[in-house]
């Protein structure tokens, strides 16, 4: 009895350790559950990137399912996902950009807005423009409220303006199929 136990206990402990470490191989340390899921969009009042006199608030997300894509021209991965986002837009998805610039540091302020607009126009002409419009997160306050850690990140927002998904990293066909599509279909399906 005792010998049997001495053999079995370390074996069980070892198997447990194996399972734990094996899971670690496939876990992404950057992935942590967003605290904003199922919450309404935080309050904000920010200008349009191209027409700064136009202001947007959280109310702009009411009424239709939106993909909110956090991006910037300085972000290389964003440039890679732009063509795919454009494809999604052509399939009928409503995509809004949340634009922020690295060089506009509230403490210093290096770049002018017209310079940013010019860069954005150039980039979108080159790679495709999936955006219905771009919200300009001037001081990156909305990004902070949304728990954005960098770019690109994408949020799925439902008709009530509630955040349903928060994806860190690029949006590609695999991510769309595995992560976004099921939720997107379930949201769209409830209204049809």
């Amino acid at each position: 009895m005792k010998k049997w136990l001495l053999f079995l206990l370390p074996l069980i402990a070892f198997a447990g350790l194996l399972v734990f470490l094996y899971q670690g191989l496939f876990s992404d340390p950057r992935e942590h559950k967003s605290t904003l899921l199922e919450q309404s969009m935080p309050q904000f009042s920010l200008p349009d990137l191209m027409q700064p006199e136009q202001q947007y608030t959280q109310a702009v997300f009411k009424g239709q399912v939106t993909l909110l894509n956090v991006w910037g021209v300085w972000c290389i991965t964003c440039a890679i996902e732009l063509p795919y986002l454009t494809q999604l837009q052509q399939e009928g998805k409503h995509i809004v950009g949340l634009y922020y610039d690295q060089d506009i540091d509230p403490d210093f302020g290096i770049k002018t807005v017209s310079r940013v607009q010019q860069e954005v126009r150039q980039k979108l002409a080159q790679l495709g423009n999936p955006y219905a419009f771009n919200i300009f997160d001037v001081k990156r306050d909305l990004s902070l409220d949304l728990g954005v850690t960098g770019a690109p990140e994408t949020f799925l927002i439902d008709q009530q303006g509630k955040i349903r998904l928060h994806h860190i990293g690029d949006l590609n066909p695999r991510v769309w199929r595995n992560k976004f599509e099921p939720v997107y279909q379930s949201i769209v399906g409830t209204t049809q």
Partner: peptide, 8 residues
């Protein structure tokens, strides 16, 4: 901070 970025 936790409200925005989690316990992390």
């Amino acid at each position: 901070m936790k409200q925005r970025y989690g316990d992390f």
